[in-house]
Every structure is written in C-alpha cells, then in structure tokens.
Computed example of a mutant assay.
Amino acid sequence: MKAVHFGAGNIGRGFIGELLHDSGFEITFVEVGQEIVDRINATHTYDLYIINRNYEKKTIDKVKAYSPITQEKEIIAAIVEADIITTSVWADNLPKIANTMARGLKARLAAGKSRVNIMACENAFFATNILKKALLNCTEGMTEDEMTKIGGFANVSVDRIALHSIKDGVSVPEIDEAFELVIEKNKLVDPSAEPIKGADYADNLDMYLERKLYMVNSGHAASAYLGQLYGCATVQEALANPVILEEAVGTMKEAAKVLVKKFGFKEADLQYFIDKNIKRFTFPALKDEVLRVGRAPIRKLAEQDRLVGPAKQAEAYGYEYKHLAKAIAAAFLFVNLDDDQAIEVQDFVKQNGIEKAITHYTNIQADTELFKVILSNYNNLLHVKK
C-alpha cells in the first residue's frame, strides 16, 4: 500500500508517518525543506525517539521524499498511485499545497483510478473541509463533482505531543507515546474500513474535536500565553508555577462543563481527561517552548477555536468563564518576533487599541459581559508582563 503525506515536520514524521508505517504503507513525503528531503532519500529511512520510553529510538523505513518546488511531476505521479493521502502542514498552509494536490487528483481522475481517502491531519476544526475549500479556490480549481468522484474527504481529530531535537546535526522527531487520532468514518471511501491502525473511527466527530481543541489545546495555550507573561521559556516551567497551573486547569474545567452540557460527556471522564493531559504537559523530560505552543495567535483567537469557542459557549449556557477570559487576554499580549500573526496582533493593538482588537480577532462584541471580563484581565495582565 502507498501513502502520500504532505509535510515532513514533527507531526508528519513523528505522528502520522509513524502510524502510516505501522499500518503497512510505503510513504512518499512532500516537503519543502530540501535538507529533510535529502536526509530521507539518503537511506529511505528516518529515526524518531519516544520520550517517555527513555528516548527509545524507532526507525521508520520504506519512505522517500519529494520537493514540491522541483519535483511536482513525481508528486503528481505518486498521488495517482496512492492508497491514502494525508497532510500535516498547519491548517494555515493548506492553500499552499492545494495546487499540487489538485493537479495530482485531476491526473488520478483522468487515469481512471479509484477514489482515495484524503485526510488533513491538522490541529484545527474540520481541517479536511478547509482543504476541500482550498482545492476549490486554488488556481487549478477542482469542482465539487471532481472531488466526489476521486476522493473520500474525512475530517480527523489529532492529538500528540511531537517535538524535535538536533542529533548529529539532524533535526529528529521526539514524541510522546500517547496519542489520539479520531477519523470521521462516514466520509471514508469505505466507511467500514479502518485504513490507519491505532486510530479511532467515529460517527460524531464534533464531540471529539471539541473535547480535544477546547480542553487539551485550551489548557496548553493558557500555559503558553500566561507562561510568557511570567517569564517562563517552556510550558513545563510555566506549569511548575501554581498560579499558572490553576489557570490552565481552570480553562480545561470550564470547557469540560460546556461539553458535559452539549454532548453528554460524563464529568468524571472529563476530569480524568484533564488529569491525564496535565500529566503529559508536565512530563519532566519535555521541553515544550511557549513560543512554539503560542504561535499563530490569530488562528487561536478565532471565534470557534480553543479559547474563544468554549468561552462563548460557557457564556451562552450561563456558566463560569473567568479562566478562559484570562487566557484570551493573555493571548493579546503574546510576543514572538518570528511569528507573523503575533506581530500583526501587537501592531493592531498599538494602532487601534485593545477594545477594537478583541472584537476584530474574536468577534466578541463590546456590549457583552465576556468582552468586559477579557478587557479587565488584559489591563491587569499588563502589570504582570515581564
């Protein structure tokens, strides 16, 4: 079996690549970083390290890599022959890969090939739907009919800590053993098939997406944004501070209450979920930089995303949202000179004021109580900022 995976970063090699390999696929990576392409092709293998197994090395074989810059013809040919197509390029970058993928899918359609499962394994709500929209709107411009004829576009929920380190001058993935990959089974080409081993297959993906994004990612983001304000370099350092730990757990508990109401999760199960993830975040061997976790704040402040989404729903249900509001406020103070989104947010606040910025990025209106609590927290956090 053959897989084409766009993106050979930490998630690409350390998460999706590993699962595809263990499911019996030969993998073709599509990767813009020429050094990674050359390293993979030198041996047709790569190594990853499992953090909580004392950095046990695992070698992934039967892999190759192509550059979309210089080897698009080879990528198109690989898509024509693929049994599965996946991505992990960041949701914001899906439009950048759309033309190449569209050319490959059109060539596959012209060759009379069968439908293929296509999954965007990104840390965002319904990322495969985002990919479909990108395929419709790109220069190649696939039609809905073409996409239906050639692909099963299944959304997924992804969760794994995937970092990296430099070994012998090479960037290698370092992963947490625990992971969750939930696949929208009714969108697969064959809903009864389970193409990726170790994944869960669900009829209702919404509840899993929201549990992951609104609980795991909200707590992670709160740790990063507040951690930076308190002068912490890593999430682990931040969560060693009892004040930040309380805030991070608080965001997760507020989101959990929403999910109990909305989907019928059991409160005890979500408390276990919180405890398990806090244990993951605080694992001593991890060094998860706040700059990495907090990056792309515009996307993370979006109306349906990890902080604003549960906060607005909590407000609608009449539930507490003080911890979520504080994390949202902290996101507006996030500074990363290597992150275009962080720079844009800071420039917008300087030019227009925090009041306009809150509504501009979150769509939270100024006449709501949630807006007032966020604004109050922002002004208070200005005095904390290191």
Rank of each mutant, 00 (worst) to 15 (best):
E72I: 04
Y319A: 05
G12M: 10
G24W: 03
A8Y: 07
G353N: 09
G353I: 03
A268V: 12
F348E: 04
I60V: 15
D200Y: 10
D206E: 12
A316V: 05
D22T: 11
Q34I: 14
E177T: 11
K266T: 07
G33V: 14
T251P: 02
V235C: 03
D190E: 12
L270S: 02
S157I: 04
N99Q: 01
A325T: 08
D176P: 01
F348P: 00
T59N: 08
V182G: 05
K58Q: 14
L19H: 08
L239C: 12
E320C: 09
G227T: 12
L270D: 01
N217T: 09
K149Q: 15
S165Q: 12
T86C: 01
E180Y: 10
L324M: 05
L245F: 15
A233K: 15
D22F: 04
A296N: 15
F334P: 07
Y378P: 01
D288S: 10
K58F: 08
R108D: 11
F126P: 00
A233G: 14
A107H: 01
E56A: 12
A82T: 11
D168S: 13
I40H: 00
I358C: 03
N379C: 05
I75H: 04
D275E: 15
I364V: 15
K287Q: 13
A202E: 15
L259A: 08
I328R: 04
M1Y: 07
V89P: 07
F371I: 10
I278K: 07
H164Y: 13
K261A: 14
Q228H: 07
A120G: 06
A111E: 10
S223M: 05
A193H: 11
K149L: 14
Y201P: 01
P68M: 12
A65W: 01
A296E: 13
L301W: 01
N186W: 06
D206P: 03
V156A: 11
S171D: 12
T86H: 02
G104S: 07
I79F: 08
K58N: 00
N380W: 01
T282D: 07
G294C: 05
I354T: 04
R13L: 09
H360Y: 15
I85C: 00
D145T: 15
I85A: 01
R299L: 12
R299E: 15
Y230G: 03
G294E: 04
I130V: 14
I343A: 07
I161L: 13
A82E: 09
P191T: 03
V384Y: 11
Y49F: 15
F348Q: 04
K73T: 14
N93Q: 13
K62P: 00
N117W: 13
D61L: 03
M215V: 13
G9F: 02
F371G: 08
G318F: 07
M147P: 02
E144T: 13
A224R: 10
A102K: 06
R299Q: 14
I298R: 11
Y46F: 15
A65H: 02
R306F: 01
K350M: 10
N379Q: 14
F25I: 02
V89F: 08
A256M: 06
G231M: 08
A124K: 12
R103P: 00
